[in-house]
Every structure is written in C-alpha cells, then in structure tokens.
Nucleic acid binder design. Structure first.
Lengths: 171, 171
DNA sequence: GCGGAATGCATGACGCATCATCTATGTTGT
DNA sequence: ACAACATAGATGATGCGTCATGCATTCCGC
C-alpha cells in the first residue's frame, strides 16, 4: 500500500454526494415511516418478507438471508417486534434448534397501513427524480459494489468464508 | 393518495439492490475502519473536517452543517470522541453560547494513520469497480435525490423549514 | 453410535442515533 | 430597556446495531 491512491476530484465529489445522500435518505425514510405508521424501516422490511410468503411464517435464518442482516441484529429486532405484537415466535417442528417467526394480525394490519405511504415516499424522493437510465445505473452500480464487497478479501462476518454462494431467490 | 403507484419491476430491483448495497457498504466500511484503526466512520468524518481547516478548530455547528448531522447526534458524538482523547472542547471567545472543537495530537495521529487504508478500501469496493460514467451517474443521482429530500414538503428536522438555503461550501 | 464440527438462535454489554427538553446567550422590535 | 424570539449547545431516556459469547441440536467422519 505504498502511497495511497487518493480519490480524484470527480470521485471525491461522487463519494461525498453519495455519503450525504444515503445518510439523509435513510433518516428521511425512517422518520416518515415512523411518523405515519409507527414502524421503522427495519420493521417494514421484516414485515414485507413475512407478507410475501403464503402463511406469514418464516425461519429467522431465511429473513436474515433475505435482508442480509447480521444474525444477532435480527434476533434482537425480532424480540422488539414481538414485544410490540407485530410478530410472534413459534417452535419449529422440523428442526429442533429452529424457531418460526409468525406474522400476527396486528403485524399484517401495520404493514398494510404503512405500505402505500412508504412506497409513495420512496417514489417521490427517489424514482420520480430519476430517468430510466439512471434507475438502471443505480441497479447496476449497486450490484457491482455489492459484488465487490462480497469478493474483497475481507471475511466480513455475514456470509463468511467463500462457501455460501447461494443467497438464491432474493424476492 | 388513491391507489398507490407501486414500483415497477425495474424500480423494485434497483431499490432492493440499493438498499442491500448501502447496508452492506456502511457495515463493511465501518468494520474495516474499526479493525484497522479503532475509528468509526463517524469519527473519521469528523476528523476529516477538522484536519481540513488550518488550525484544527471548528465550531460544532460548522461540523454539523458540513456533515449534515443532527445537532444532538453531533453533541453526543463529540462527547465520546472527547472522552477518547481525539478532540477537545474549548470555549468560544466571539460567541458566549458557542464552543470550539479542537483536534488533539492524538486525533491528528489517528486520522493520519486511518486515512490511507480507508481510502484504499473505498477505492477497492466502490471506484475500482465503476466506470467513469457510472461515477458521474452516482454523483448526479445522489445530488438529485438529496435535492428532492430537501424540497419535499416534509420539515425533516435538520435544516428545517425553507430558510436555511445555504450549507455553502461543502468541500 | 460417538466425538467433533457446524448450524440456528438468544443474550448481555456497549457504543451509536433520535427525541424531547433544557440552559444560556444573542438578536430584534417597540 | 425589555420582552419575544432565535440560535448554540448539552443532556437523559430509549430504541437500535455489533461484538462476544453461550447453548442447544443436527450433521458427518470414523
């Protein structure tokens, strides 16, 4: 790592713009969601996964992979959601170690109430301002970076070593 | 808000890719930085601002605007950084309410040690994988979204109402 | 079928982010 | 000069994210 390859001017501008944008965007989405429906963005994403499956029932590790979260984050988060009545936990019949996360009626109601507003917000602050090409660019660019993170010689706790090349259907 | 304008397929793919990427990216950067130098990304950004100014001295509100942070987040964060000896606080002569954040020697050492590695990480996971056009796209796209957040009819605590249209020099 | 590794999940400690609120100083209008 | 208000900053409570660790159960080689 001799003399560091600093970012050139364009890269620097892009980087700062990105960093600033991403901070504000998540903050914004979180606040809107919280104010409109009492859910956090994290709650929302968990609930989406659960509603996407017929019986509203998922194994924690499925959610974990679906969202690319750390295991312990999910566990803690599920506890909080459980406390608030958005989900429930059941024992898993097929795997003695396992658990099952179940969407409660309250959870279903909450996500149903939150979704339209949230999508509208996302649309307004993001997609309504982007051209088709920019949307494509965003997707390609994100996938590229994601790939590089997973390929970089850094274990990076979630999906460690190099053996778990599946994370198949991501919705 | 009659029937919500859901995201079409491309938008949805882009959105999921972005969300997943951004989560992983910040986590990745944070971990690398933490492991290599004991700094968090937040520490790093504060220190960068301080080193960019000749005497290593800034008013909290300047940092706040430079980073687009919430005031109380900054205040708490400064306290922690102070506790760790990265910065110090002084009283402000010109404004009795004010404070001054001063970069300590330890802070200067820390950022100096951290910077090369961090930049290298950013380069590796982001810029080395993007074409020039994609870098430009990233910048435009981020600025656009940022703009829309600030223009959307949502107060959004930091930089409230509509009167503080300055946040001038951000570089 | 037994011992070791891997997997699925939970938990406690701790740093971080936000909200609401508080104090003190500065500014402005009358 | 003073009341009303704005600005700079700090603080406590609380929810969130990560790390390290713990503990079952299941899997696998012998």
């Amino acid at each position: 790592m001799s003399t560091p390859r600093w970012l050139d001017e364009d890269e620097q501008r892009a980087w700062r713009a990105y960093m600033r944008m991403q901070g504000r965007l998540t903050a914004h989405l979180n606040r809107r969601l919280q104010a409109d429906s009492g859910l956090s963005l994290a709650d929302y994403e968990v609930l989406v996964l659960l509603t996407d499956v017929p019986d509203g029932r998922l194994r924690p590790f499925e959610i974990q992979r679906g969202l690319d979260w750390e295991q312990s984050r999910l566990s803690h988060h599920l506890s909080r959601m459980q406390r608030r009545g958005l989900i429930a936990r059941e024992e898993c019949a097929e795997d003695g170690r396992g658990a099952l996360v179940v969407l409660t009626d309250e959870g279903r109601r909450a996500i149903g109430a939150a979704a339209p507003g949230h999508v509208e917000t996302v649309r307004r602050v993001v997609f309504d301002g982007l051209s088709e090409e920019e949307v494509t660019a965003l997707e390609r660019l994100s996938s590229r970076v994601l790939d590089r993170i997973e390929t970089t010689g850094t274990p990076d706790p979630p999906a460690a070593g190099r053996e778990s090349r599946d994370h198949g259907r991501d919705g």
